[in-house]
Every structure is written in structure tokens, then in C-alpha cells.
Design a protein around this nucleic acid. Structure first.
Length: 834
DNA sequence: TATTATCCAATTTTT
DNA sequence: TTGGATAATA
């Protein structure tokens, strides 16, 4: 039976055969992709073509006449969803299936059915900072003592409880195995916080999931209806789902058990925020009839990279043993390198990237640099910037500007307009920019709101009736209310215009200009960017509305206002969403953000004790193993090249401290790697706290299996070229020693473009920054394969270069066939710019 | 009330 | 090193 799918291309209908969709898959992949009905578990190792299978499977289902609107595909990030949607579109034309993140999906359900838990449809999604702020307010309002705990840890505790499907009420009685100050305070704070949120018509991230889980539990008829609506559910990264997500997925798969999950226990890296590996480990118990497919062959990495990953992860004891394998070539050895300081580490990486790009071997976008903590990006940024030419890079930290104060302030205005009950937004902007509504005034307002169960904005409307308020304060408040009312009437304006109106009329523009003029910042630029962002969003959104117009779904985008959709998107963007892998830039990101991506060449920096594994994750086995998985994830992102490095010193919160290599480095197959370590290897570090290892010598040293080496023939050819130039210059005794060669060097200087780093240094004051730049340019200009002249030894060719700054060292082979090493900053060297 | 000064804290990973 | 929160001052 050949089900078919009709599409139109340039207006002509044509037909895709179902077989075509599966044709490009391997046998195992096809087994998974062609399984439509009934539960399916796909254990997919790194680089095993998981995304490929998932996308082909969806395309296949649609080609088999599964109604797209019955398909629900849940991913971890918006980016993953986007990527999949794109790939599906290449296979089959089928609008109408839902693909997105858990949180996005839940937001959508709540917009429709939130009334069941006390939410109006225009509810606000608070980001973690806002929700922490809300928590603090709630705690303040209930005079709870924060002895021995902090708002932070309470927030953490509440979040954990919610991820584990404990509603605030259930948390009260939950048998947390032992009494602790934290649970005690949390039991008091949590209901207050919950009330605060509900009265603000707001939810935090965890609520999105928890509310939906509760709705599904308490409303059988609605549950059944949704179960039927989403008959085919697939979940990506299932190893990273928490209990709330588990409950949601299962509640929607009772009547129609067409649940397919994909994941890899070895890539579970979110247990710290409630992800539950047993969700995937016990899928077969939950669904005894599940078809299980293992994708183990790796199509991404070289043999050596894969072996490195495999040996590392084998050290995890709580794990079902499995062997990764590939048919790919063994490839270059994985590099394991020690550096003295993060600056050296960064400089070496920058040089390596610059060199490979210059040689035309790679593009900038082929490189990615991973770190355990975001703070480690600083030295790398500096190093990439200081290369000549600058190395373009992008740090994957989402739309970072959305977190800036001024931007969040404006967004808070939007929130208040969209959801007048939003007390969090109210508190944020009621006196921003300052308009005479201070602490005491606010206190009175809060009291009033509390007494009469009003929102803050409602309380403001009654300011005239609050006796405790001064006339002056009441007037300020009433001006504020008017302002918000005016904005509210403009809500129909295009988003960009709405923002402009707000910014101009509430005095924000002037306020920012004043600050910018004073501090030299450019906050106004961030506001402009927000306006652009909003306009761009609206354009896409309206286009989507046009294409989705045929959907019968009442909750589809068309019913949501642009403003609300924009605010929702802003709340749910993640770090990994905001970058474009196609622009030609080096990417830098945390190891967590790297999940799901792949790059030809990968650097992992700062693999040090207390960093990876992180010191807060070293105490128990479970979290230690998660750290190991994190490194595993990083390693398996690499296709062809991988470098893992650590430093002997590390500058942290202003102070430089001794660092030591991560225990994980001892678990790698070092016999098969190219190690550039101090004498004594990894273990040597502790013995020499003051050592300052510079991997100058071996790091860039020729290596036969490595194309970094300049081939012998190439060296000879270059030397002959040098000889020829010399002869042309009329000097037939070029291999003579010193004095004559001085003369030769002068002649060379006359006939070619020659630069001497030493000259530059001599002629300038090395303290001036300008001259430092000149020096760097000169130093960076020396590169492998260049013809050079040395005052003493004559002409030669650069075989390899290593090190950075004053320590940048060239290995040069001269006409006398001798190799010598020089510090470029000091050697009397010139190069020929040919 | 607003602005500045000072101190203090914390600083893993993120929807 | 940063930001955030509080204290002091105009």
C-alpha cells in the first residue's frame, strides 16, 4: 500500500511516495521512522542521526494520512523546534502540526483553559528574575523571618517542588524526609508567593508546567479531549524531562498511546533542575509494548574523538554499558593541552583559528568554543578580538539585551498594559523613570491594595481616598494612572509604534539620554534594538497568521494579540535560541547550550578541578556523573577536531588562583591523544604551584598525522625559492656566515617589503598602547611557510609557530639545513611580503 | 524623594 | 569583577 502525499510546486500538483521519505535512511533508522502507532522508544547516541529520524518520521506519518493537527512534537528549545520544522518542510508540505517547547505548549493550553486554575487568558509569564522579585515581595508582605535562609534558596526549593509535581498545598504536607529550616520557611513563603502570582495573573516557568499537569489531572473530560486532539505525541530529549513534563505527556497518552520519545541517558545534563533520568530508563516499564530502537552508529565524529568520548563515559557506573562506534576515519588525534593562564589558553586558540582560516582550511563558523561557566568567555573574547584581523565571534547567550534594565523596564510597561493585574511589572516601573512615587507612598498603596484585595493599579485609582497619602503623592500617582490608561488605548498600534509612544511619553527617552550623556553608555541603542525586534516579530507573526489561517483551532495564533504573543516569546526565549549558525562567526557557549549542535572543530576550555566537575557537583555520585556527561556532550559535538585544555592558574572574581586539571582528564585515552603537558604530565601540577607552563614547543610542532606540519617537500621548495631570490639579488654566497648576510638582509630590505618586529620594538616606547598594537600586528604577520631573513643566519623558512605575545616563537629552517627557534618579538628577523 | 556612596554578596548550568 | 541592596546625604 503506497500512501501518497500531494503537494504543489509552483502551482503544479505532484506526488511524493512514502518510500521516498524513508529511502535515505539506514535500516535501523527506518525501523524507527516507519513506526507510527503504539509507543516507541528511541535511544539515540550522539551523532546517530536522531533528528533525521524524527523529522523523517513526522513526514512519513503525514504521507500516511495522519492528520497533521493530531501531531504534537515537543522539543527542549525553540531552536531545536525551528530546525526540525525546517527539515520537515523539505520533505513534506504539511502545516498544522504543533512543534515547540514544553513551556510554549503549556502556555498555549493555559491561554485556553487557565480559568480552571484561576488564570485569565492574558496572564503574564515571569522570568526567573521577576519571579524572584515577586517572591521577595510576598515574603516582605507576610513578615516571614529569613533566618539562615535566603530568598534565593527558597526560590530554588519552590522551583524544585513544582518540578516534582508538588503543588504549594501538597508541599505543606509532603514528607520531606527531614525537617529543615529551609522547608519550614518555604512552607510559609510558598503559599504567599502563590497568592501573589495568582493575584498578579502571572505564572513562573514551573507554573506553566504544573498548572497544566493539574488541569489534566482534575478535569477528565478535558484531558480526554486533548488526548484525542494530540493523538500522536513525540518528545525529544526525553532524558531531560522532569516529573511535571512526564505527567503531562502521559496524561495526553492514555487513550492514544502513540507516544514516541527519543533521548540518550548519557546526555542527561539537567538533573540539577529536576530532570529525571528514570523517565527514559523506565519507559519500557511504563509501556511494556513499546518498540525499542537503538541508534548507536555515529556519523558525526572521527574515530579518535568518539573513542575519547566513549572511554570517558564508561567511567559512569550508574549506566547501562553501551559501545559507540563509527565507520568514519580515525582522524587527527584529540589534543590535550595545558596552559599557564586563561589568557594563554585563549591566545593559543585564537591563533590556531586564525591560522587555519588564513590557510583556507576552515571558515570561522567551523569553530566552537565551549566552557563550563559563562564567565570564562571573557579572556576568549579579548583574544579573538585582538587577533589581526579580528576573529568574528558570537557568544550564545540568547538575546542578552532583553535582560538589560532599560529593556526590561519597557517590557514591563507592555506587560502592565497587557495585564493590568501584573503587580510585578507595576512595582518595576511605577517610579521608573523617577516620578515622585517613593518608598513610603508605595507602602501606603500596598496596604490599601491588601486591605481591599485590589491590584496595585486599582489601588492607584483610589489614591485620592487614601488618607495617609500626601496630596503631592496622590497627584503623582494619578498622573501615572493616566499615563498607563493612555498607553492602554494605544494597544492596537503596531508594536514598534506602541513602544515608541510609551518610551516618549513616560519620559524614558529623556531619562536615558541624560544617563547616556553622563556615563557615556548607549542605553538608548538597546531601546532602539527592542523596537526593531518588536517590528520584526510582528512581521513574522502576521505572516504566520496568514499561513495558518486555515487552521480550525480556536487557540491558534490568530486569536492571540500581537502584544501578548510578543511578550510570551520574549519570556520564553532561551540562551540557545538567539544565534544563527550560518553567519561566519566563531561560536562560544556553555557546555549546556552546546547540546544538540555539531561543529567541525571544537575547543573545550577550563577543564579544571572544581570547574568541571563543578565544586557544587562533586559531593555525590549522581551529580558527579552528570558533570561527566556534560563533558561527554561537549566532546561529542566535534566532527573532526577537538582540543581539551586546562590552566595552571585561573583568575576568578578578581583574584588569580592555582588551578589543577579535572579528574576527568585522567580518564581519557591519553595514549591516543596528542598531549602537550608539563613534564610529569597531568599530575605534575600540584607539585609546582608556581610553574608557568607554556606549551610553546610541542603545541604547534609538526606532527605527521596533522596537517599543521609543513611538509618536508614544501620546506625544501621554499628554501629553493629563497635561494633563487638571493641569486637574483646578485649574492651567490648566501650561505656564508654573519657579516655578508647582514649585507644580504639590507639588500632584501631594499627590494621587497620587509618588516622587522625588532625594529618596531626598538623604535617605539613599548608602554604606549598604540605601539603595542603595532607590535602585535607585526608579530601576527609572521606565519608558517614564510620566507624570512635573520641577521646572523641568513634566509630560511618558518616551519612552525607557537606561543603568543612576547612568547610567540618561530621554528625556522635555514639554508644551512639547521632548524632554530626564535622569539619573534626579539629576534632580528625580517620577512618577505611576497 | 532622589541621588550618590558604600558595602556586600555571590558567581553553574536554563525553560 | 559584577550587580544589587542598603545607607547617607542633598
Amino acid at each position: 500500500m503506497n500512501a501518497t502525499n500531494e503537494r504543489t510546486l509552483l502551482g503544479f500538483p505532484y506526488v511524493i511516495m512514502s518510500e521516498d521519505i524513508l529511502a535515505s535512511l539506514t535500516e535501523v533508522q527506518r525501523q524507527a521512522a516507519s513506526h507510527i502507532d503504539g509507543p516507541l522508544l528511541m535511544i539515540a547516541g550522539p551523532g546517530s542521526g536522531k533528528t533525521r529520524v524524527v523529522t523523517h518520521r513526522i513526514a512519513y506519518m503525514i504521507s500516511q494520512d495522519v492528520n497533521p493537527s493530531n501531531i504534537l512534537a515537543l522539543t527542549f528549545t525553540n531552536k531545536a523546534a525551528q530546525e526540525m520544522r525546517l527539515r520537515i518542510e523539505r520533505l513534506v508540505s504539511a502545516p498544522g502540526y504543533w512543534m515547540g517547547t514544553f513551556h510554549g505548549f503549556c502556555a498555549r493550553i493555559l491561554r485556553q483553559h487557565g480559568n480552571l486554575v484561576g488564570l485569565a487568558e492574558n496572564f503574564t509569564i515571569l522570568d526567573s528574575k521577576d519571579s524572584k522579585q515577586a517572591l521577595k515581595r510576598a515574603i516582605d508582605a507576610t513578615n516571614i523571618q529569613l533566618t539562615h535562609t535566603s530568598a534565593d534558596s527558597i526560590a530554588w526549593e519552590i522551583s524544585n517542588a513544582k518540578s516534582n509535581l508538588l503543588t504549594p498545598e501538597e508541599y505543606q504536607t509532603s514528607s520531606t524526609n527531614s525537617y529543615s529550616a529551609l522547608t519550614d520557611v518555604t512552607r510559609k513563603a510558598s503559599p504567599a508567593y502563590e497568592k501573589y502570582l495568582l493575584r498578579s495573573n502571572s505564572v513562573d516557568f514551573d507554573d506553566l508546567l504544573l498548572h497544566v499537569a493539574v488541569i489534566l489531572r482534575d478535569n477528565p473530560e478535558l484531558r480526554a479531549q486533548l488526548d484525542d486532539r494530540y493523538r500522536y505525541i513525540m518528545v525529544d530529549e526525553y532524558q531531560d524531562t522532569n516529573l511535571a513534563q512526564y505527567a503531562i505527556v502521559h496524561a495526553l497518552s492514555l487513550n492514544n498511546q502513540n507516544l514516541s520519545v527519543t533521548g540518550d541517558p548519557d546526555q542527561s545534563i539537567y538533573a540539577w533542575r529536576g530532570a529525571n533520568i528514570s523517565n527514559i530508563r523506565e519507559f519500557e516499564k511504563d509501556y511494556p509494548t513499546a518498540k525499542v530502537v537503538h541508534l548507536e552508529q555515529n556519523y558525526r565524529s572521527t574515530g579518535k574523538i568518539l573513542r575519547t568520548a566513549d572511554e570517558l563515559i564508561a567511567h559512569n557506573r550508574h549506566r547501562k554499558p553501551k559501545k559507540l562506534f563509527t565507520d568514519n576515519a580515525a582522524g587527527e588525534p584529540v589534543r590535550l593541552v595545558c596552559f599557564g593562564h586563561p589568557n594563554d589558553e585563549a591566545a593559543a586558540i585564537a591563533q590556531r583559528i586564525a591560522a587555519e582560516v588564513k590557510r583556507g582550511e576552515r571558515n570561522y563558523k567551523d569553530f566552537a568554543i565551549f566552557f563550563r561557566v559563562n564567565a570564562f568567555s571573557r579572556p576568549l573574547e579579548r583574544a579573538l578580538r585582538s587577533q589581526n584581523p579580528k576573529i568574528p565571534f558570537q557568544i550564545v547567550r540568547g538575546l542578552e539585551f532583553l535582560k538589560r534594565k532599560e529593556v526590561k523596564d519597557i517590557i514591563a510597561y507592555l506587560h502592565l498594559v497587557n495585564n493590568p493585574a501584573n503587580n510585578v511589572a507595576f512595582e518595576r516601573i511605577v517610579n521608573m523613570p523617577p516620578r515622585g512615587i517613593g518608598k513610603t507612598t508605595l507602602g501606603h498603596l500596598r496596604n490599601h491594595a491588601e486591605r481591599y484585595q485590589l491590584t496595585m493599579l486599582e489601588a492607584c485609582r483610589e489614591a485620592g481616598m487614601i488618607e495617609t497619602l500626601s496630596k503631592r503623592a496622590a497627584a503623582a500617582i494619578s498622573r501615572f494612572v493616566t499615563l498607563i490608561d493612555v498607553f492602554t488605548t494605544s494597544v492596537h498600534l503596531p508594536l514598534g509604534d506602541l513602544i515608541i509612544e510609551i518610551v516618549d511619553n513616560c519620559g524614558f527617552t529623556n531619562y536615558l539620554e541624560k544617563i547616556d550623556a553622563k556615563t557615556g553608555e548607549d542605553r538608548s541603542a538597546n531601546v532602539d534594538e527592542l523596537i526593531n525586534e518588536a517590528r520584526e516579530f510582528q512581521q513574522h507573526f502576521d505572516e504566520d497568521k496568514a499561513t495558518d489561517a486555515d487552521l480550525d483551532d480556536a487557540a491558534s495564533a490568530k486569536n492571540q494579540t500581537d502584544l501578548e504573543a510578543f511578550l510570551e516569546q520574549v519570556a520564553l526565549v532561551s540562551e540557545v535560541d538567539g544565534f544563527d549558525q550560518d553567519t561566519n562567526k566563531v561560536l562560544m557557549m556553555s557546555l549546556h547550550a552546546a547540546k544538540g549542535l555539531e561543529f567541525p572543530s571544537v575547543f573545550i576550555v577550563g577543564v579544571e578541578h572544581g570547574i568541571l566537575p563543578h565544586e557544587r557537583s562533586m559531593d555525590d555520585d549522581r551529580s558527579l556523573e552528570e558533570e561527566r556527561r556534560l563533558l561527554f556532550v561537549g566532546i561529542t559535538r566535534a566532527e573532526q577536531q577537538l582540543q581539551i585544555s586546562y590552566c595552571q592558574r585561573r583568575t576568578f572574581r578578581g583574584q588569580t588562583r592555582i588551578a589543577s586539571p579535572s579528574q576527568f582528564l585522567y580518564e581519557l585515552p591519553r595514549d591516543d591523544m596528542r598531549c602537550t603537558l608539563p613534564a610529569g604530565g597531568l599530575a605534575s601540577i600540584g607539585n609546582h604551584p608556581n610553574s608557568d607552563f607554556e606549551p610553546t614547543a610541542d603545541y604547534f610542532e609538526p606532527d605527521q598525522s596533522d596537517h599543521d606540519a609543513l611538509a618536508t617537500e614544501e620546506i625544501e621548495a621554499k628554501l629553493q625559492q629563497a635561494q633563487a631570490i638571493l641569486e637574483q639579488a646578485g649574492d651567490h654566497e648566501s650561505q656564508q656566515p654573519a657579516p655578508k648576510i647582514d649585507h644580504l638582509a639590507n639588500e632584501l630590505a631594499a627590494m621587497t617589503n620587509i618588516t622587522t618586529a625588532a625594529d618596531l620594538l626598538a623604535s617605539t616606547d613599548s608602554k604606549s598602547s598604540q605601539n603595542n598594537t603595532a607590535k602585535q600586528i607585526a608579530l601576527a604577520d609572521f606565519e608558517q611557510g614564510m620566507l624570512v631573513a635573520h641577521q646572523r643566519y641568513g634566509s630560511g623558512v618558518i616551519v612552525s609557530i607557537s606561543g603568543s605575545g612576547d612568547k610567540r616563537t618561530a621554528t625556522i629552517k635555514f639554508l644551512d639545513q639547521q632548524q632554530r627557534k626564535f622569539r619573534l618579538a626579539f629576534a632580528p628577523l625580517m620577512y618577505m611580503d611576497t
